[in-house]
Design a binder for these strands. Structure first.
Lengths: 140, 140
DNA sequence: GATGCAATTGATATTAATTTGCAATAGAGG
DNA sequence: CCTCTATTGCAAATTAATATCAATTGCATC
């Protein structure tokens, strides 16, 4: 289970799965779309949690390092994260007019990563492709 | 010539090619690698320019809009830009250990953008692919 | 070259996101 | 229960970037 995975990760770093970190993880696991730290904090608050903003900010790097979330973009001076999908990696189409984000998966791209890395003598771990342009509504 | 291109762009927006904007453009054209606003500001300073940080920040969006530079990444909470190469678009391999950035160009990827956009009913303008991993020195 | 006026500038204050210092608290192991 | 760190919340600090504003400049027109 996810909780266990996080706990184990924390142990390897001599850290503890505290109530706060636990609450933050739960909330993140619930998150269906992209989110930013403030949003996460507000959600926790409204659910009655007492975690501080500082703890949210402090926990995010841990969640990234343990593979639960990743930073997907920077909009308007603040970071956005998303739950790393358990099933499949995906990339993003971003509408520069309305801000809409469309997710897509391309097997060709996945293969391409390996190909490029081999040519450049690089050990690729992950990638992020963002295609900017206009969505169906905005491309008018 | 580049200067002229920028001047024309500015004219379309009722803006002027001032000494400051001119100096900033020159410096940017000289830039061989990635840079951030502070770096750009320091370089201008050391060359005796009197431009203010504010002007640097104010000019960057103009240089982006006129196609001279583009934002390539966010490292450590601040934006990095690079000169848009006159010849060819490229993407990046980023070593997460030492920070080295390798540029590459993949025609397959360029075609892939069109393919993906068509499928998703999106009008793609540009893209940015970052592959994270370890460079030849760090992959040990 | 002087004049008028909007665009531009530098200096400084401001904002917003994120980080950090610190005293108080809480868990794990004895 | 006791000790020892890790952890927390709060508030202050930091940082990149933006906005304010009075003074200046560029340029078209006289």
């Amino acid at each position: 289970m996810e909780k266990q995975k996080f706990k184990e990760f924390l142990l390897t770093k001599d850290l503890k799965l505290t109530k706060e970190r636990n609450e933050i993880l739960s909330e993140v696991l619930d998150m269906k779309t992209h989110f930013d730290p403030e949003e996460l904090f507000i959600r926790l608050k409204t659910k009655g949690s007492k975690v501080s903003r500082a703890s949210v900010y402090r926990t995010i790097p841990l969640l990234i390092e343990s593979g639960f979330i990743e930073e997907v973009e920077r909009i308007d001076r603040h970071a956005h994260y998303e739950r790393v999908s358990t099933d499949k990696h995906h990339d993003h189409l971003i509408c520069t007019k309305c801000g809409k984000v469309i997710e897509f998966y391309s097997p060709t791209l996945e293969m391409l990563q390996d190909e490029i890395c081999q040519k450049e003598d690089f050990k690729g771990i992950r990638h992020s492709l963002e295609i900017f342009g206009y969505c169906e509504k905005c491309k008018g």
